[in-house]
C-alpha cells in the first residue's frame, strides 16, 4: 500500500476535520426529558460560586443550594429554556459560574483555538512531508550530468490557495465546534446584555421624570402598553401630567387634572398599599381641586405607609397647609 500523494493531503485533511466535527455533533446530548432531569442537567453546567471546580449539582454549599432552588423554581414555571436559565444565573453571578465556556465572545476561543491549532498543525505536517518527499527522491549520483529527479516546488498561487484553504478550514472548524459545544446563552452578546424589560423602562422613565417629562411619559406609556395595570407607570405618568399642565391654559389644565385624577384612583384601586399614588392624589385634590378634607385623607394614609424619601419631600410642607386650610374652613 503506497503513501497518498502529497496532492491529496489537503483533501484528506478536510475529510479528517469533517469526520471529527461530525463526531462532536453526534455525541451531543439530546437533552433531558423530565423536570428533575432538566434541573440536574442545568445544575451540572453551573459551577458552585464558592467551591473549587465543583458543580452546583455536586456541592452542598449554601450558595449552590440556593442556585439549585432557583433553577427548580424556573424549571417549574416552564417559562425559560435551559439556556435561558443558565443565562439568568450568569447575569447574576458572572461568567465564572459557567462550567462550559460560552460559544460567543472571548470564551469562544476555548473552542476555536484547539481546532484551529489542530488544523494548522496538520497542514504544516502535510507541507513538511511533501517537502521531505521532494528532497528524499534519489539523485542520479553516477551521472553528474543528469539533473535531480525531484519534482519542482508547487507554484506560488497553489501554495497560497492551500494556505487560504487551511486558514478557512481552521476558522470554520473552530467556529463550528464552538457553536455546537459551547454555551449558547440567549439574549446575550459578547459584552453580556440583559434584554430590555418593564423594569428597565421604568428605571429609564424615572431618571427622566423631571429632566425630560415628554420622554418619561412616552416610556411610561410603553410600559402601560404591555402592562396596562402597572401601578408605578399609572401613578408617575399621572403625576408628570399634573406637573406639565401647571403652566397650560385653564382648559388644558382641567383636562389634564381630570385624566391624572382618574389614573391615580385607578392605581390606588389596583394597589391600595402604594403610598406614592395616595400622596400625589392628595396634592392634586388640595392644590387643584381645593378639597382639603379629601386631600388630608389621602396624605394621612400615604404618611402611614412610610413613603420613599422623594415623595415624602414633595408632601412634607403640604400637610401643614392642608391642616391650616381645614382649621380656617
Amino acid at each position: 500500500m503506497s503513501a497518498p500523494s502529497p496532492r491529496r493531503w489537503p483533501v484528506l485533511l478536510a475529510a479528517a476535520t469533517a469526520a471529527l466535527l461530525l463526531g462532536v455533533v453526534a455525541v451531543r446530548d439530546t437533552g433531558p426529558l423530565t423536570q428533575q432531569e432538566r434541573i440536574e442537567s442545568i445544575s451540572r453546567r453551573v459551577a458552585c460560586p464558592t467551591c473549587q471546580g465543583e458543580s452546583i449539582a455536586a456541592s452542598r454549599a449554601t450558595a449552590a443550594e440556593a442556585i439549585r432552588a432557583e433553577i427548580a423554581r424556573q424549571v417549574a414555571t416552564g417559562q425559560r429554556t435551559d439556556d435561558e436559565i443558565i443565562g439568568f444565573i450568569e447575569s447574576r453571578f458572572g461568567a465564572s459560574v459557567l462550567l462550559l465556556p460560552r460559544s460567543t465572545g472571548l470564551d469562544s476561543l476555548v473552542w476555536i483555538l484547539p481546532v484551529a491549532v489542530l488544523v494548522v498543525a496538520a497542514a504544516a505536517l502535510a507541507a513538511a512531508l511533501a517537502r521531505w518527499r521532494r528532497t528524499a527522491l534519489p539523485v542520479a549520483e553516477d551521472d553528474p550530468g543528469v539533473e535531480s529527479a525531484a519534482p519542482p516546488r508547487p507554484p506560488v498561487a497553489r501554495r497560497l490557495a492551500v494556505a487560504v484553504a487551511t486558514v478557512a478550514l481552521a476558522a470554520g472548524g473552530g467556529w463550528f465546534v464552538a457553536a455546537q459545544s459551547g454555551q449558547r446563552l440567549p439574549g446575550q452578546s459578547a459584552t453580556g446584555g440583559i434584554e430590555e424589560s418593564t423594569a428597565t423602562l421604568l428605571s429609564q422613565a424615572r431618571s427622566l421624570n423631571f429632566s425630560d417629562p415628554k420622554a418619561s411619559v412616552d416610556l411610561y406609556g410603553r410600559v402601560l402598553e404591555v402592562d396596562p395595570d402597572n401601578v408605578e407607570a399609572l401613578t408617575y405618568r399621572a403625576w408628570i401630567l399634573v406637573l406639565a399642565a401647571r403652566e397650560a391654559s385653564d382648559e388644558v389644565k382641567l383636562a389634564a387634572f381630570a385624566a391624572a385624577d382618574g389614573q391615580l384612583r385607578r392605581a390606588i384601586e389596583l394597589d391600595p398599599g402604594y403610598p406614592d399614588a395616595r400622596c400625589f392624589l392628595g396634592v392634586l385634590l388640595f392644590r387643584y381641586a381645593g378639597d382639603a378634607r379629601a386631600a388630608k385623607e389621602q396624605l394621612d394614609t400615604c404618611a402611614s405607609m412610610d413613603p420613599p424619601a422623594v415623595v415624602q419631600g414633595i408632601v412634607e410642607g403640604l400637610r401643614g397647609e392642608v391642616e391650616a386650610a381645614l382649621e380656617e374652613g
Partner: peptide, 12 residues
C-alpha cells in the same frame, strides 16, 4: 429559599 440572594448573585 435564597431567591433574593441568587437574584443579586450573592455567593458569600
Amino acid at each position: 429559599d435564597g431567591a433574593i440572594t441568587v437574584a443579586f448573585g450573592v455567593a458569600l
